[in-house]
Design a protein around this nucleic acid. Structure first.
Lengths: 250, 250
DNA sequence: ACTTGAAGTTGACGTAGCGTCAACGACTAC
DNA sequence: GTAGTCGTTGACGCTACGTCAACTTCAAGT
């Protein structure tokens, strides 16, 4: 007993194009072909097709499906499924985060906000300054910033901290050498900081000057950045202001 | 102040190829181009790029992003986001179901099962026969079947019930006319039933005969199928057995 | 003036999993 | 003979770019 391609397709709930595709990539060969190339399938092929479709519903790619079906031992098939399960869980977690962010963005828009990402707090994984910030810049900016923070993965945050730390170390060395803040070398470092801040937020001249002041004026920022070296934070502030004046449009 | 394509790319964390792509599809035009076609971007374009990347992180497609950014009023932008949120939630729910099924499949494989989908219960959304079935066919088949059931969407199940109901009505009419079970007209209806069962499971001759007996022997199946008309269920059983004998290979 | 290197350009193909024509062949029914 | 149905093999299209390949432009060094 054999079935034509369309009979199989109807029974399995796929199109004949799909079966031809599976044949083309070697995933499911017909039992035999008549003259003119017409494909015919038998019980064995239907069984294989069912397994294919089951795995496809699980979200595996066709090549992964081929691997599973080619695996002689159940163990390696289980291994493929285990990896796939991990991927599914990661995807679900990502979607969870996306839902939160979409909702936050919708709220911002409904309040009349503009979707600009305002992160004054770039470089700090947790944001212990939220209260302070709310009184200083209002709720919308903070909501944006914290929502964006939440989306960071751990290694992104680590990379961000690293970039900030490297810039600070370079600045400390320049200051130790007595290099003035408007020296090209110092300005180069600040340029790196500016571009890094731009990953989250693109401040104009005044905003960047305000950020520089914030770094010094706020005890917790100053402490967190300078680790006790207040003069370094002031050096950074002055360099940032010089950069803002010379490189950022009004 | 303007930036070259690579400066923008580094600042935004994308590649220059991406920016060229956005230009090509009209999502982000450079501020101006020099001779030779080199692209230059200014503050305004960076702002737009940030919004693009924010929306991209939310998982929107580039065309949807274009819609949001083109929307003059916040309301229509929110509408796009609302649809996207619904899509995200649906995707997450789908992944939830997939995780469950993958885990069940892994368990089956580890127990030495063969991943064949065995659904004796095709046509019933809920499966009140689980206990009975476990004693009759063992745990593996039931796990498979219930896992597969859980994955059905509501409208798939409704469509399945409808198909079954239509076949039954046709059979009832034939029986009322005194048509024998091996008449081509009755066999045609059973052929439809067989193909429909194949959506979930491809029984061989013995399995299909077993299914026919099950329909009559089990009180709850018989009641559910015949709605009190036991003779109709017996007619179905005999027609199915005739079909199995004549059309299904041993 | 010449070379070299860096950075830019356009064009094209590749990715996954088929959908969707187009153009044609084979078989059945009337 | 002809219409209709079912099949075939290409081939292009879809997302969001990655990745060559083949050139051009521009500034710096010799």
């Amino acid at each position: 007993m054999s079935w034509s391609i369309n009979e199989v397709a109807r029974a399995a709930g796929v199109t004949s194009r799909t079966l031809r595709h599976y044949h083309a990539i070697g995933l499911l060969e017909p039992a035999w072909t008549a003259d003119g190339g017409r494909r015919f399938y038998e019980q064995e092929q239907l069984l294989r097709l069912q397994r294919i479709l089951l795995l496809r519903e699980l979200g595996l790619g066709l090549d992964a499906i081929g691997e599973v079906l080619a695996a002689q031992d159940g163990a390696s098939a289980v291994e493929v499924l285990r990896r796939h399960r991990a991927w599914l869980l990661a995807e679900r977690a990502r979607l969870d985060r996306l839902v939160v962010t979409v909702e936050s963005t919708m709220t911002t828009l409904e309040k009349g906000g503009t979707m600009t990402v305002n992160s004054m707090f770039a470089g700090f994984e947790q944001n212990p300054y939220e209260e302070e910030a709310r009184s200083r810049w209002g709720d919308l900016a903070v909501d944006d910033a914290t929502a964006r923070m939440r989306r960071w993965s751990a290694d992104q945050a680590a990379q961000a901290r690293e970039g900030f730390g490297a810039a600070l170390a370079a600045l400390a060395a320049l200051r130790a050498d007595g290099v003035p803040v408007d020296d090209p070398r110092a300005q180069d470092v600040v340029d790196g900081h500016y571009r890094w801040v731009c990953l989250f937020w693109t401040p104009d001249r005044d905003a960047y000057r305000g950020l520089a002041d914030l770094y010094v004026d706020d005890d917790r920022f100053r402490q967190n950045i300078g680790q006790g070296d207040d003069a370094l934070v002031e050096y950074l502030r002055d360099a940032m202001k010089a950069y803002a004046d010379s490189r950022l449009g009004q």
